[in-house]
Design a protein around this nucleic acid. Sequence first.
DNA 1: GAGGAGCTATAGACCATATCTATGAATAAT
DNA 2: ATTATTCATAGATATGGTCTATAGCTCCTC
Lengths: 292, 292
Amino acid sequence: MNNNYELYKVFYWAAKTGSLTKAANNLYLTQPSVSHAIKQLEERFGIALFYRNSKGVTLTQEGAMLYSYIEQSQILITLAEEKMAALKNLDSGELRIGGSDSLFKHYLLPYLEDFHHNHPGIRLHLNHGTTPEIITFLKEGRIDLGVVRMPIHDSQLQVRESIKLQDCFVTGARYAELKGAILSLDKLLQYPVILFSRNSRARMAITELFQNYGYTLKPEIEVGSVELLIEFARKGLGISYVTREFVAKELEEGSLFEIQLDVQLPPTHVGIMTMRNMPLSRAASSFIELVR
Amino acid sequence: MNNNYELYKVFYWAAKTGSLTKAANNLYLTQPSVSHAIKQLEERFGIALFYRNSKGVTLTQEGAMLYSYIEQSQILITLAEEKMAALKNLDSGELRIGGSDSLFKHYLLPYLEDFHHNHPGIRLHLNHGTTPEIITFLKEGRIDLGVVRMPIHDSQLQVRESIKLQDCFVTGARYAELKGAILSLDKLLQYPVILFSRNSRARMAITELFQNYGYTLKPEIEVGSVELLIEFARKGLGISYVTREFVAKELEEGSLFEIQLDVQLPPTHVGIMTMRNMPLSRAASSFIELVR
DNA sequence: GAGGAGCTATAGACCATATCTATGAATAAT
DNA sequence: ATTATTCATAGATATGGTCTATAGCTCCTC
């Protein structure tokens, strides 16, 4: 390289300490090295930068001019290095996650709490959306990772399989007669079914399953949140198709019960998506580590 | 050195151009060198700074953070280098000269005009004072050079001998009878003598000369400027002791004439003083070059 | 003054490493 | 497919940064 920025660091310390010897100590160099470095700078500029005497060095007029620029420059570099250290230590930075509201609330929440507790300096951005939206966000670089239901097939994405979820039909006291019974699909269809809105992944999966058995699943009620699925089933408005793990509390306390079917409902996995071949931010990789 | 600031320059160009190849071209390096440099930075921080793809590179979140600092830093360095080039080319800077008013006006003025014309970017500071004051200014670093009458004996100073000046006695039409005559010192003392103020170098020199011949020189009138010395002599108030070169115009036009003496008055030299062992500013050394 | 304790400058040797060439691998465009 | 980009990697080379040893200078102390 034609001119070496390293020399500015030496100059900075020499000017700051007023002594080549002290500069050398600060830089873990020997005094002759510093002397040589300053001389190089002076020769390069064709301008004397320091007055030398037996007490040390002081800046010349021109040296002082140079210092006024270099000082700022060096301070910025120091700040930059501190910032990078903070980013590495997860004392600073941000983590942008995309996912569905229900996954945030019922699956990620404890991890998010934990992560935030351990790394309060990292700002969390949660972006909810449908799976295709999340994928778009990822590809546009607006989020670091997406948490969605598998399967995902996209060669640009890397998907890590996470927790296994089991969807099921649940209802409340209004249909207590079904408790313990093992229903067939057509029997189930005689009851009002409550499903999540049309474009959800779970909805598509269960609709397809019914179709494979020759039935058409058309919901009595269609809602936009898991909360409402639970609430409506409890109130007796019908049978909700929900993720079992998300109604653990209600099943436990008995306000909902699961309806046994004579067919096996397919489990789904949660996938953590990131861009393939793109390095993860420290925060993102640390979070993924935590979740898995 | 433990960490190399040179890498930041490479990082800056890679980020700025979005391409390692372009960065290499800008830096007159090869692409593998740049690739290697970036890799080093990333390993040093333990953080990926760029996403690489077949079109080039783009900053990661953390890389963008680093860039926000480094960009400013690099801009400052560039400005610093431009400033230094300007100082070297004498397009910028300042020149601080100490001297007596009379030397500024009658000796330095044309040089100052010339210098200012050639280097309009350099600010001129003229500080007038007595010789001891000028020396103090020099030692305090408040001026770059001093222009005074020789001899100067001070081991801290370097004195360059400049123009030779000859002091002499002059008067106007009122004492026309003296024109062409050759006076002795005691004869001169019968006329009213006008001298410069007590603490001037020229005054001390001529007083001492009279003393060496056994006479006491006491002025009729004592003035504070060379202008008044000239003016008073012209108006016929007495015989002024002035520097011949400074009254060249008046001698030429005949409004003053020089009085011949039977003794040789000692010539003095103008000296240009600078601090010994201290590098001169570009402006100062250029000006000294011009004057000599 | 002599001697000591600072400071910086200089000379010469050494080796770390920045840089190069040559090549590979991956992607995008023709 | 083929060509033209991009960046990554490996290995060789020589530049030049850094060291040790020493000298020169100034200031201070005895």
